[in-house]
Structure formats: structure tokens, C-alpha cells
Design a protein around this nucleic acid. Structure first.
Length: 368
RNA sequence: GGCGAGGUAGCGAAGCGGUCAAACGCAGCAGACUGUAAAUCUGUCGCCCUAGCGGCUUCGAAGGUUCGAGUCCUUCCCUCGCCA
């Protein structure tokens, strides 16, 4: 909690929700914040300036992917991840714990760590808590995540409990191996079990992490279970440290989580779904491929300030581009979706500052 | 005019006597996507419906052989190639 250049202060509180300022080596990040995902040192299809224009102040990179390719030494040789990808702002790196979940069939777990069979060439690679910290130090991210054990949403309680225990053991090893100049967040597991979550939050809260994350949500459990758990769990995370809900989510998920006291989010949903033809709007998702838009002259959303909507590209045109497999539409929809998230979080921060988050959230959560 | 190849669902293309409403690809339509192995994946894709080992109509046209024909025979129509 004494990492140089890293800090967090809460500036406004509205119920359980709070807005604040995260300070990193690169500058300030206003919270609540959404972090676009740039797994392989790139927010797919966009330049850093385009990402920043959506309102993002921090992006996420991935230990697992960059570890395998191009290798952390290459990135370090380029001056670190921010310099490498020409994103001059804050970068957070995920630890590879999620790949142990999403690539579960390609890895084994032991007390020491994970052994992956590389998805690139099949070679065996061992990722331990120490290796995850070594790699992230070389990547030079401003915030590193501990290696954790993320059980699927369908896991039985005893397996979730085991994951919690292992994650705590790894948390201690993580801190012993940390780069003292890099902020490090611990990851709380426990699935949808409130008691496990609270206990784990207390355990990790005792350790000198710079922030606390909630992992193991949106991993297959019904969204309502997460929605129900968040207000029961988030207030139990140390309020002086930033709280990060990993891998979440839809605009609705974000609002529910902010109301519960979450400060940071990341999710591939706006970027991946953009590339799969889905525009996210105030009124819900819009699948640009649908035949109903074939002759629709309207933009995705008249009230949106993103380049795509401001230029006035019609749904008809965007549908055509998508069906013709033109690359432009992937960029436009990615920008649009990230813009919607950036705009949403900006409004959320304003609403918290003026203590009107409840009203704001109701409007969003009950579209009509 | 002669010889050869061929006409199968919107398109391309399998099919060589029964289990063929007909493989596969494309196009079409719908859906999924939440710490990114994703510009990916899934379903559907002759017509009808009570949606089923359901009914009906199909494989250029007509006729025939057969218990049974997209598959065999005859004639006709049409494409493409080579030769005149």
C-alpha cells in the first residue's frame, strides 16, 4: 500500500457508490472507470488516440498472451508495454489466471502454479505466481494482477473453496515476488457464495495489495446471481483501496456494480461484440446484420457522440459494410461501443458527484 | 451438321437402384458472445403444418423398365467444348 506513484482517493460518495481518482505512474484515472481490453498490446482495430477519444484512461493487457508472444523481454526492450503500444496512459495487466479458466483444457494446475500447453505451438509453459509477477514487471504495466485460481460458474462449493485457499497462498507468494515500483492487486474468489467472498475479502484485505479485485464472476453463472451477490460482497472490500470487478460486463452489470461500490471494470464485450456486428445502445444491443436494417437511414443512435454516429453512417450502410466484410465497420462499431461505455462511466461519475446515481441508474436500468 | 461433356434446391457442387428432401461450400435468415486462442461460433436453410423416425412436391421434359428411379432405358429440349 506504499507503492510509489500509486494512489487512490475517493472524492464523492453516493450510497455505496463512490467516485474517485486513481493515480499511477502515467497520470490520473477517474473512477468508476472502464478499461478496454487490449490483450495482445492492442485494443483490436483502434489506435491509442482513438481509444482515448472514447473516454478510456486505462487499458488492459495480458500476461499470458504477451508472455508467449512476443515475449516479455521483447516488450521490456521496447520500453515496456505503454511505449511498445504507444498508449501513453495507464496500463493494467491481467495475470493469466483467466486463461487458466478459458483455456482450461490446455492446462493443469498444481500447488506451484499452472502448466499450459501453448495455444500457439503446443509447447509446455509453467506459469507460477512468481513468473506472473516477473513477466508483468518486464511488461512494465502500472498495475499488475496476482495469479489466481478462477473456477467456472458451475463449480461446486468445495471446488470454489479450494480455489479461494489456493488464491490466498498465491497472493502471499505474489507479494513476495512483486516489483516494488509496480502496483499490485489481489483477486478475491468465492463464486456466488457470500460467506466465501466476505472471508476472502477480509483475508486479502490484510495483505498490502494496492487494490482488490473480484474475480470469478461472469464465468458461467446466471447474471442475476452476480447482481444479487455484489451488494452483499463489495461493501466488505477495504473502502480505501480501489475495487475492481474483473471481466464485467454489460452496461446494466456496470451500473449494478457501481451501485454496490465497484470502481473499475474491464470487459471484452464492447470490443468483441462490435466485431461480431453488435452495436450497444441506451436501448439495448442492436445487431447490425439484421435484415430489418437493410434500408434504415438512421444512424445507430442519433444522440451518440461517437465518430460513427456523428459522421452519420446509416444502419443500412453499416449493415452493408458488415455483410461485405469491410474492415471499416469493425473499427466504427468498436469505437461506438467503447464510446457508449466511456460516456456511461462519465455520466455515472457525474451522477455520483451530484448524488443522483440512484435516479440515473433507474433511467438506465429501466429503459423506456 | 459431326463428335464429346453436361443439365441436381437462390448459386456452385456431390450423388453411380432402396436408409435422398438430397452431402459439402457460398449466399440468405436467426441466435450466442462478460479478467479475448473470437472480423468468431451455433442453429436454420424445398413447401405445409398439430413441427414429427409427420404430410406434400422435387433432381431439364415426356415416356418406359423395376416391388422401388436423382441414379437404368428411349425420345425430345437446352447448355458448353472441339471439329466442319
Amino acid at each position: 500500500m506504499s507503492t510509489p506513484s500509486f494512489g487512490f482517493r475517493v472524492t464523492s460518495v453516493d450510497g455505496q457508490a463512490r467516485s474517485g481518482v486513481l493515480t499511477t505512474r502515467k497520470g490520473e484515472v477517474l473512477t468508476p472507470t472502464f478499461m478496454p481490453v487490449g490483450t495482445q498490446a492492442s485494443v483490436k482495430t483502434l489506435t491509442p488516440a482513438e481509444v482515448a477519444a472514447t473516454g478510456a484512461q486505462i487499458v488492459l493487457g495480458n500476461t499470458y498472451h504477451l508472455w508467449l508472444r512476443p515475449g516479455p523481454e521483447v516488450v521490456a526492450g521496447q520500453g515496456g508495454l505503454s511505449a511498445f503500444m504507444r498508449w501513453p496512459h495507464t496500463v493494467l495487466t491481467d495475470s493469466g489466471g483467466f486463461q487458466a479458466f478459458s483455456l482450461a483444457e490446455r492446462r493443469t494446475i498444481s500447488d506451484d502454479g499452472f502448466v499450459f500447453r501453448s495455444h500457439l505451438d503446443g509447447s509446455k509453459r509453467q506459469l507460477t505466481p512468481e513468473e506472473a509477477m516477473r513477466v508483468q514487471s518486464l511488461l512494465g504495466s502500472d498495475i499488475a494482477m496476482q495469479l489466481d485460481v478462477c473456477p467456472p460458474g458451475t463449480a461446486e462449493r468445495k471446488d470454489v473453496e479450494a480455489a479461494v485457499l489456493q488464491t490466498t497462498r498465491w497472493a502471499k507468494r505474489t507479494l513476495a515476488a512483486r516489483d516494488p515500483l509496480q502496483a499490485v492487486f489481489g483477486i478475491i474468489q468465492g463464486g456466488v457464495h457470500i460467506d466465501l467472498r466476505r472471508r476472502h475479502a477480509a483475508e486479502l484485505g490484510e495483505l498490502p495489495f494496492d487494490g482488490l479485485a473480484l474475480g470469478g464472476f461472469s464465468v458461467g453463472e446466471p447474471p442475476e446471481q452476480m447482481h444479487a451477490a455484489l451488494p452483499e460482497v463489495v461493501p466488505y472490500l477495504d473502502p480505501v483501496r480501489p475495487r475492481y470487478l474483473m471481466g464485467v460486463g454489460t452496461p446494466r452489470d456496470l451500473l449494478i456494480a457501481v451501485l454496490a461500490g465497484v470502481d473499475m471494470f474491464d470487459c471484452v464485450l464492447p470490443t468483441r461484440n462490435a466485431r461480431n456486428g453488435q452495436a450497444i445502445t441506451r436501448r439495448g444491443p442492436l445487431s447490425i446484420k439484421q435484415a430489418q436494417y437493410r434500408e434504415d437511414r438512421r444512424p445507430i443512435d442519433e444522440d451518440c457522440g461517437c465518430p460513427c454516429c456523428q459522421i452519420g453512417y446509416s444502419r443500412s450502410y453499416l449493415r452493408h459494410l458488415f455483410i461485405a466484410r469491410e474492415i471499416l465497420v469493425l473499427r466504427l462499431l468498436t469505437q461506438h461501443n467503447l464510446w457508449v461505455y466511456g460516456d456511461l462511466l462519465r455520466r455515472v461519475r457525474e451522477a455520483i458527484a451530484s448524488r443522483k446515481l440512484g435516479v440515473f441508474a433507474r433511467e438506465w436500468l429501466e429503459p423506456g
